[in-house]
């Protein structure tokens, strides 16, 4: 029963957006950076500003897929005492206030340490909709998949990269739920995205095969870039640029209202044509 509800919160969002002719704005923030209380305010502000889905980074000591901005955010979050269990409590408390789909971006060991089944049950009851696990390719995902099925969620969102072969594309498309996370560049988070033509070509090829939404992340930092990517992708993920902004400005008294304006600008940029 739960599973249906969960698939629906992500899928429903993409379906609604499609009906309106809109693209999904998906901000990423590091849970617990600078504190979990702040994370709660940030999620609510982003949702009010027009974020369609929100990714919550679960801090890990050894984030091999991340560039310096998110590495340092993870270090700050761990220093502030953030744990997976505490993040789940934050989600529980957020679910009273917002129904925005929440997706965890977590390295596999943090989930493994809690126990796959225990984690999935907690996550689904707290209101987590999806999981992105950068170091868990489809080949290694059977056990987690079984646990999500038994617990009724969350769904696993797999990634595709510019290096993925067509065989791997098929495999990921078959296994992913909610949407496909397309990594725009061969590299780590926060790198500079330069070749948009290639991204477009790959995303369109995947869309053709998949009949599932494709969101693009890594290296998208400005409203202009977000706009360009939204011309072909179903969703745009903004991570490092936002994490840096939060780190640099979160102490400003007007920070949350400014963030809402920035978010709205991004959402508008996605919508505008040409």
């Amino acid at each position: 029963m739960h599973k249906v509800t969960v698939v629906n919160r992500i899928q429903q969002t993409f379906d609604n957006l499609k009906a309106k002719g809109e693209k999904a704005l998906i901000p990423y923030i590091m849970a617990g950076d600078p504190s979990l209380a702040m994370t709660e305010s940030l999620v609510l502000t982003l949702a009010e500003g027009g974020a369609d889905l929100i990714e919550l980074g679960v801090p890990f000591s050894d984030p091999i897929a991340d560039g310096p901005v998110i590495q340092q955010a993870a270090e700050r979050a761990l220093q502030s005492g953030t744990t997976l269990k505490k993040i789940l409590s934050t989600v529980r408390s957020l679910r009273i206030k917002t129904q925005v789909p929440l997706i965890f971006m977590a390295y596999y060991n943090t989930i493994l340490a809690m126990g796959l089944m225990g984690f999935c049950k907690e996550a689904i009851s707290a209101g987590v909709d999806g999981l992105i696990i950068p170091d868990l390719p489809p080949e290694e995902s059977d056990e987690l998949y079984k646990a999500t099925m038994a617990a009724g969620g969350p769904v696993i969102i797999f990634l595709l990269a510019p290096t993925s072969t067509s065989q791997r594309r098929k495999e990921v498309i078959k296994r992913t739920h909610g949407f496909i996370y397309y990594v725009s560049l061969t590299g780590i988070t926060g790198s500079q995205l330069t070749d948009l033509t290639q991204v477009k070509k790959n995303v369109q090829a995947i869309q053709k095969m998949a009949k599932k939404p494709v969101a693009v992340g890594f290296g998208i930092s400005s409203p202009e870039q977000a706009h360009d990517v939204a011309q072909f992708a179903d969703g745009v993920i903004i991570g490092s640029a936002l994490v840096r902004n939060i780190f640099e400005h979160h102490q400003d008294p007007a920070f949350l209202s400014n963030l809402k304006v920035t978010t709205r600008k991004l959402k508008t940029a996605l919508a505008s044509k040409n």
Binding site: I64, E139, E140, A161, T163, S164
Partner: peptide, 12 residues
């Protein structure tokens, strides 16, 4: 054992 690496590295 196994292969717990980002998708970008899997083909390599």
């Amino acid at each position: 054992g196994g292969m717990y690496v980002p998708e970008t590295l899997m083909p390599a």
